[in-house]
């Protein structure tokens, strides 16, 4: 099927805005042809068997049932991704993730107060003593205690307010709870000392 573009005056003729007599002489043959084509169109009403019944059935269907049928009905859809759109999409996704992270569960004091604490262990026979706990990632080398003359080992630390668990490490191998502090099960069959500041 080929398409033909009529002159704008001829289109006005087809629309009924003007008559054939109003057309310039050079366009009259084109206008007559257009009118012939229009007359050739079959304008009888189209009869489709059962159409009315089907339409009425669709209208009569319960709106909720129709909604769920539309939602649950499997359908195929295709997504076409333009490569240049990936960059802004990734950036927007990262921004969304960061925003979700910022609006996550609230937590109390962001910068808790600091408290100075003195750790003391009497271990006259020890060659070295350190303290390891939640405040220094359980690093047995991070916080050595200093020995005094009486075989008492001490260290002074400034820790954030909160609950800390710790143990003394004697001679690098023996984990000993603080005998002067409350203690809880460490989950490994030993005890951790507790410091609540």
């Amino acid at each position: 099927m080929s398409e033909r573009e009529f002159h704008s005056f001829v289109k006005q003729l087809l629309d009924g805005d003007i008559t054939i007599a109003d057309l310039p002489a050079e366009l009259r043959s084109e206008g007559e042809e257009a009118l012939r084509l229009l007359a050739a169109v079959d304008r009888r009403p189209v009869q489709l068997d059962g159409l009315t019944a089907r339409v009425m059935a669709q209208i009569a269907e319960h709106p909720k049932r129709k909604f769920w049928r539309r939602v649950l009905q499997p359908r195929e859809f295709r997504v076409r991704v333009r490569p240049w759109l990936m960059v802004p999409a990734l950036a927007a996704a990262a921004a969304l993730v960061l925003w979700i992270g910022r609006s996550g569960p609230p937590s109390s004091p962001a910068s808790p107060a600091l408290v100075t604490v003195r750790f003391v262990l009497s271990a006259p026979d020890a060659h070295e003593v350190s303290v390891a706990g939640t405040f220094n990632q359980w690093n047995a080398d991070a916080t050595p205690l200093v020995r005094t003359d009486a075989g008492v080992w001490t260290a002074t630390l400034t820790l954030p307010a909160g609950e800390h668990q710790y143990a003394f490490v004697v001679d690098g191998v023996r984990w000993v709870p603080d005998p002067a502090a409350p203690a809880v099960d460490d989950g490994f069959g030993r005890r951790n000392s507790v410091l609540t500041l």
Binding site: A132, T134, Q137, W138, N139, A140, D186, G187, F188
Partner: peptide, 24 residues
Amino acid sequence: IQKAIEGNAKGVPADRVAAAMRLV
């Protein structure tokens, strides 16, 4: 995270560290 680090620092076998982490 602290329990995992603590278990390693104390030389606890991996299966016991895993059990302690699940308990936490």
